[in-house]
């Protein structure tokens, strides 16, 4: 496509979209025969968690950790979406083996296209950054964070961002 010719992947700087930017819309496979569109989830906070690959060899890995924290995310009515360049069948096997109870999206074809639009593709590796986005109910990114790719960022930043989305009335709005 012309835009990729104009900006060769291997020279493209990856700068993650920051707070205030509109979250690029996408529609990706969540299972081998079901797609999920970001716009379908409008009205509630979204946690978009890019991660390099399924089958990370550590236990208590990032997706497993978030799986354990799902009840806390649900307190904020937030929907967690994992996303990597792995295919839908790979995600299905990974989710089944790890008992994951949230969608894993396949940014598989064209590979990493959604990650590129969020500024978190790693062309040198062919995978994505380990990057987190909290998107509000209006589709605006309210917080983003790119972790060193080898370090699981945990969930404290996500929870703080979700808390900041809460109505401010009880905290004394600035006059």
């Amino acid at each position: 496509m012309s835009d990729t010719l104009a900006t060769p992947l291997n020279t493209m700087r990856t700068t993650a979209l920051a707070a205030g930017a509109a979250a690029p819309l996408f529609s990706l496979n969540a299972t081998p025969n079901q797609t999920l569109s970001l716009s379908d989830l409008r009205g509630r906070p979204i946690i978009l968690a890019f991660y390099p690959a399924d089958w990370s060899p550590v236990c208590g890995d990032q997706m497993g950790l978030y799986n354990a924290i799902l009840p806390e995310f649900h307190r904020f009515d937030a929907q967690l979406l994992g996303i990597s360049v792995d295919g839908a069948w790979c995600h299905a096997a990974f989710a089944e083996q790890r008992h994951l109870h949230f969608p894993l999206l396949a940014d598989f074809e064209p590979k990493g296209a959604v990650a590129q639009r969020y500024g978190v593709y790693r062309p040198q590796d062919g995978t994505t950054e380990r990057a987190l986005f909290v998107i509000d109910g209006e589709g605006i990114i309210r917080w983003s964070y790119v972790s060193p790719v080898g370090i699981n960022p945990g969930a404290d930043g996500i929870l703080a961002a979700l808390e900041a989305l809460q109505p401010q009335a009880t905290q004394g709005a600035r006059s």
């Binding site: 550590v58 208590g60 990032q62 924290i69 945990g154 969930a155």
Partner: peptide
């Protein structure tokens, strides 16, 4: 304990 850990940035065990 678990939630205090989450809030502290526990990222695995």
């Amino acid at each position: 304990d678990f939630m205090g850990g989450v809030r502290s940035g526990v990222n695995g065990t």
